[in-house]
Simulated scan of single mutants.
Amino acid sequence: MTRTLAALPGAARRLCLSRRNGEICTREAGHRGLHHRRGGHLLWSEAQADPPGCAGAGAPAEPAVTLPDGFPGGRALCPVCWGFVPLDGGGRLLAHDTWRGDPTREEADRRREWFNAHGW
Rank of each mutant, 00 (worst) to 15 (best):
P86S: 12
V80L: 05
P52G: 13
T26L: 11
G56A: 08
C25D: 09
G22Q: 11
L77N: 09
V85E: 02
A57K: 02
G90R: 13
A47T: 12
L43T: 09
P68V: 09
P52Q: 12
L77A: 14
P68I: 10
G39K: 10
N21Y: 02
S18F: 03
P60M: 11
F71A: 03
L87A: 08
C54Y: 05
P72M: 09
R92E: 02
W82M: 15
E23H: 10
A59W: 04
G39S: 11
R19N: 08
P52F: 06
R37W: 15
C25G: 13
H41V: 04
P72C: 10
R27N: 08
V85M: 06
D97G: 15
A61P: 00
R92Y: 00
G91L: 05
F71R: 02
A64H: 07
P86R: 15
G58D: 10
D69V: 04
G53M: 08
L94M: 12
W44N: 07
P68T: 10
P68N: 10
E28M: 02
G89H: 11
W44K: 07
A49C: 08
E46C: 07
E62Q: 13
L42R: 15
L34T: 11
S45G: 12
I24W: 14
L67N: 07
Q48E: 15
